[in-house]
Design a protein around this nucleic acid. Sequence first.
DNA 1: TTGTAGGCGTTATCAA
DNA 2: TTGATAACGCCTACAA
Lengths: 332, 332
Amino acid sequence: MATIKDVAREAGVSVGTVSRYLNGVDIKEKNKKGITHAINKLNYRVNPIARGLKTNKTHTIGVLIYDLTSTYATTIVKSIEQKLFDYGYNIFVCDYWNNPELEIKKANLLIEKMVDGLIVFPCSYNVDYLHAIQESGIPVVMVNWGLNDFKCDHVLIDNTNATYQAVEMLINHNHRRIGIINGPEDHYIANERLKGYKRVHKDYNIPLEHDLIKMKQFDQEIAYEAFVQLMDLKIPPTAIIACNYDTTLGMIKGLNERKIHIPKQLSVIGFDNLGLSDVVQQPLSIIVQPTEEIGKEVATLMLNRLKGNYDNFPSTLRLKTSFIVKNSIHKI
Amino acid sequence: MATIKDVAREAGVSVGTVSRYLNGVDIKEKNKKGITHAINKLNYRVNPIARGLKTNKTHTIGVLIYDLTSTYATTIVKSIEQKLFDYGYNIFVCDYWNNPELEIKKANLLIEKMVDGLIVFPCSYNVDYLHAIQESGIPVVMVNWGLNDFKCDHVLIDNTNATYQAVEMLINHNHRRIGIINGPEDHYIANERLKGYKRVHKDYNIPLEHDLIKMKQFDQEIAYEAFVQLMDLKIPPTAIIACNYDTTLGMIKGLNERKIHIPKQLSVIGFDNLGLSDVVQQPLSIIVQPTEEIGKEVATLMLNRLKGNYDNFPSTLRLKTSFIVKNSIHKI
DNA sequence: TTGTAGGCGTTATCAA
DNA sequence: TTGATAACGCCTACAA
């Protein structure tokens, strides 16, 4: 591999001149020519490792996600990458398999690799490790995860309103027994979405019924079981809302297995439209997140912080969801 | 950030001793204690960038995939990562959005970041760029993509047999007009899978019918259109096989839309079981790839090459698919 | 077994 | 504007 030294020798100038040229500093036209010639001849490319050693910048952003096979996460990551790439950054995706211990380990790995910034999709509140990272000057942006004690930039969606509006529609169709299949209570997203469910019940003076609220896991199989439990209640719900993609899939599995007709026998609302909407046979109303936009905002925020622009830090962007209404909601 | 120098000073030894300790060379017990103490006190961590500058090793493997949101690819990548991580390597996932130009760009980015090895999921034959990479001593492992002119390690699945056996089962159920929804002919995987389809027709003396063979794109929407075309034939097929996950989804969309009963009205076989099997209402026989095993083999191969073990290079592993048979095949 | 010092490929400072 | 040279943090002869 040719080094800057070789180029300098070949071009008959000093390494300083070559380095300056490489970094966009103006040099004599004549030298410029000689250097580009030498670079081409030697097929020289800068060594970003060596450069990083000196500049402490790698132009690489670490992205820490809970699961690489989560289409929700990868859809957003794709959008993040697209934008960052346009600005000369590339990303380093790490997956921590929903394991908080691994999360810390991998975060440190990323830091060791000298990423210039860190984008995190958390799935627990064990994010103390981010303190040190942020304090060491590395910008941290969190995706769809709220935190009270730790100050960093956030891009969220309006989880509470999303479920509020969806359930409100069910209520307006005279549903009173509405089941909810959700993640665990100590999960930020699950909790926010539960809030919407509760709030709209309160606003419409409908008493909450514990049996109808399934705070389980954001997991297809477990959601399926929750669905079965709901339908096996002495008085089953007349409508069910699933609170993320996996729980929606679990619910669909249950619908298929029990051959429940939508919307005659049951009204349903799902969450996240990640490709399966065409595959399910029955109509399905879906709460949709602006994944593309989320990614863009995350990237923009990160790029600002990297430039040293810390305007209104910590900033919290909250994006609106939309609601695709299909014939899955029945008036009773 | 504390450096090795700081540790040395704190422990009252030389940097050489600290470095040796860090790299597993035996040193005096007393010094060992002093150094570990200093390391803890200063919260010192080696700087892999600096180390990499010296050793030319980053313990990072680049993974180049065509699309980050492809569950097929990420499922395999996850398995790759799992294994590599156990051996002290981590991965750097890059997505080239099915764009051969970007593919080259991103590959070079990865190389610049000094990855020790490169794992590629190609989607075209424009892989000349890999020549130079491999010749520079960086091991390259290719996933499910065959190549005649370029020698590198491969992990494949037995694409041809997969479709052969599936179509054979249809034939044994007396189907003679079997539609196939597949990717483009210049796509390695599509082509291999087409071969199986053709071969079994030949072996059973069934003439091929051009109208039944849809070499389109591995894309849900386009596959849906192909499905419609097949069903709109004057004499539609009695059975259809879809040749990857996306085409399977497209086919299912068509089935739903036309309310075609499986297997009474049509026998169908899909490809790749990536979460959809529970979601579709109708029974679906599926050709399944051993994604976990593919990832493991890719990682193992890579680890060997990294160790300098180039036994039987280039090696081509071909893994068997399995076939989940459900009630989607009707005897006529 | 340990310390010293040179070098990995850059950037950045300082004179010239 | 340029060249020489000292860092950056680590590894590794070589000498002690």
